[in-house]
Simulated scan of single mutants.
Amino acid sequence: MDKPHIKTDPLYQLLRQEDVKAFNEQRDSLDCSNLRNGDYRGRDLRNMNAKDLDFSNSYFRNADLSGIDFRSTNLQGASFLDAKLSGVYFPEELSAEEIRLSLDTGTRLRYRKD
């Protein structure tokens, strides 16, 4: 598994710069595949359109993700240590316990296999 890192990808850089409005405007016209394995520590990403994105193995420590709908987002292996998650929707495959462990201890999210 790759460690999260900073990339030169234009969409990734918009999120690093917390320009969520520009990200939302450009996400459907640019390649979104470079968002996985990203380092999003401490970023304010509220209002981001995360529909059908792949944030697997990404790092969201201390990020403000309030109100984001992640229901159709790949979060496998992501870590949410101390992130703000008020009003966030998560994929059904993630249990509340799994999310709490990631929030409290930084564990990487594991999807249920029912």
Rank of each mutant, 00 (worst) to 15 (best):
Y59A: 03
R36W: 12
A78F: 04
N47C: 15
L75A: 07
I99A: 10
N74E: 15
Y111K: 10
D28W: 01
R110I: 15
Q17Y: 09
Y89H: 14
D104R: 07
K3I: 12
E92C: 00
S72A: 12
R108S: 06
A22S: 13
K7Y: 09
R61V: 00
R16L: 15
L94E: 10
I6P: 00
R108I: 05
V20T: 08
G106L: 02
M1T: 10
A50F: 00
D54A: 06
P10F: 06
R110Y: 13
D114F: 14
L30Y: 13
D28K: 06
G42V: 03
L53N: 06
K7G: 01
L85V: 05
Y40K: 05
L85P: 08
R16F: 14
S72P: 10
A83I: 01
D9Y: 11
P91L: 09
E98R: 04
R71N: 08
N24G: 05
Y111D: 05
R16V: 12
I68G: 01
T105K: 13
Y89Q: 14
N62S: 09
Q13Y: 03
A83Y: 12
N49P: 00
L53S: 09
K21F: 12
M1C: 07
L65C: 02
G38E: 08
D114H: 15
R43K: 14
S29E: 15
D44P: 09
L35I: 02
D104A: 11
G106C: 04
L45F: 12
Q13T: 15
L35A: 04
P4W: 02
R43D: 00
A78N: 07
G87M: 06
Y40A: 01
K113E: 09
K84H: 13
E98V: 11
K3T: 12
N34T: 04
T8N: 12
D44R: 06
N34Q: 13
E97Y: 08
L65V: 01
D114Q: 15
P4M: 01
S72I: 06
T73Q: 08
L30S: 14
S29R: 14
L53E: 03
F55D: 03
Y89K: 14
D2T: 07
L103E: 02
N37M: 04
G87N: 09
F70S: 08
H5W: 06
P4F: 00
F90A: 01
D82T: 10
T73H: 07
N24I: 02
G38V: 02
I68T: 07
N74A: 15
F23C: 07
N62D: 10
S102N: 00
P10E: 11
L15W: 11
L35H: 06
S56N: 13
M1R: 09
A63W: 05
L35S: 03
D69H: 09
K84E: 12
I68E: 06
F60R: 05
Q17G: 08
L75H: 11
D44F: 02
L81I: 10
F80G: 01
T73W: 04
E98W: 00
